[in-house]
Structures are given as structure tokens and as C-alpha cells.
Simulated assay, not measured.
Amino acid sequence: MEWKRQPGQMFGPRGVPLPGQSFAEPDGKKPKGRKRGGARPEPAVVAQQAVRELVLPDPEIRTNPDETYAQLVRVPTWMWLDRVMWKPVSQTAKVPGVSVTATAIPRSATWRMGDGKTVVCEGAGTAYSAKYEADSESPDCGHTYVRSSAGRPEEAFTISVTVTWDVEWHGGGEQGAIPGLHTQAQMSLRVAEAQALVVS
């Protein structure tokens, strides 16, 4: 069945409208709403409105070595996200008689490294600094390439990160959770083979 999308409509897997929302039937007719003066809106319905109005920040990818330099095969690459965006984001929706606040919390970052490998990090990752050895591994979010990106488009791997957010809401004497909102970013990363220098 093909549903007609309405402004602000949120959909789940396979294009099915999320529960608790109004949507048009396939024939274009709108479902009957409550009459004025009737029962107050369900908090779960107002929560969906608050979720629609959430503005989640886009991830900002950071690596060491920096993306302007080539990574080296068999030398650890550090990945992390700007910590400014790794914090809860809240939004409150109000309708007559009901106020609901939804809070999105970043839970994990899934990195696809472009070489067929996937790395799942439970947090934003640790930013590299001079206090670490140059060839040390990240304590919580890193990857070591075993082959170069030679022969790939623009001689680089395309890496991407998907941040998973869980939403908790409360209001109107009720509370609930909506898992699995996502934000994404990607960038190109060159990986080179280290060349040995023989000195006679």
C-alpha cells in the first residue's frame, strides 16, 4: 500500500507511517480527527511532534593523521567526532492541555572505512594529541588499514560515519522511548604504502 506523505510526516521501515500520527489514506481522504472540546491529545502523539521538530547536529569527522595527509598502511588511524555535537538535544511540543519534551541522546557511531571494514564506537572517540605516541592506537575508536587506496576513485577511500540517537520523551503524565534516529557524514581518505629507504 502506498501512503501519501504529509508535511512533517515521519516514516518507519518500509515506508510505514509511525504510530500515533495523522496521515492521508490512499484515496486521498484525511482520517477523521477529534472534535473540538473532545478528549485531550495523547502524549505519545504530541511526542511525535516534538521528535519531528528536533534539530540534530551533523557529525564533523576528525582523523589523525589529518585528512589533508595520507594515512599509512599498518599505522593506526584515529577517528573521532567534534564533541560539541556529542550531547543531548531537546525539543518541547505544546498543544492545549499537553506539553511533551523529547530528548535525543547520541549512543554510538558506526564507521565504514571504505576498505570493507566497519568500526562501531560507543562514544565520540578520543581526539589525538601530542601526549600520545605517533604510532599508538586510539583507546576507543580507531582502525588500521592493511592496503592502500591506490586504484580507487581519486586514489582515496570514502569513509562514512552514522551516529545513532535514542529519543526519550516525557509529558502529560507519561513517558516513552523512540530508538534509532540517525545522522550521517562522509569524507575521502587517502591511504598510502610506506616506502622503505635503503641507505648504503
Rank of each mutant, 00 (worst) to 15 (best):
F11Q: 08
V191C: 06
E60A: 14
G38F: 06
E133F: 12
L189E: 05
G33Q: 08
R112N: 05
Q186T: 07
D58C: 01
S129C: 10
P43H: 01
H170K: 14
L56D: 01
S99V: 09
A104C: 13
H170S: 15
V100M: 12
Q184A: 08
R52T: 08
V146I: 10
V163L: 02
V120S: 09
V161F: 04
P17Q: 06
G180H: 02
P179E: 01
S129G: 14
R152I: 01
P26N: 01
G8P: 00
W78F: 02
T101E: 11
T92C: 10
G15H: 00
T68C: 04
A177R: 15
V45H: 11
R36I: 06
G38V: 04
E60L: 15
L72F: 07
Y132T: 03
E137I: 01
L197E: 03
E25F: 13
R34C: 02
T126K: 10
M1C: 13
N64D: 05
F11N: 00
S99W: 01
R5H: 09
S136C: 02
T101W: 02
E25R: 15
V55N: 12
P106T: 08
R152C: 07
A44R: 15
L189T: 13
W80N: 10
G28M: 06
E67W: 11
S108I: 07
W78V: 08
S90I: 09
V119S: 00
A156V: 05
K30D: 11
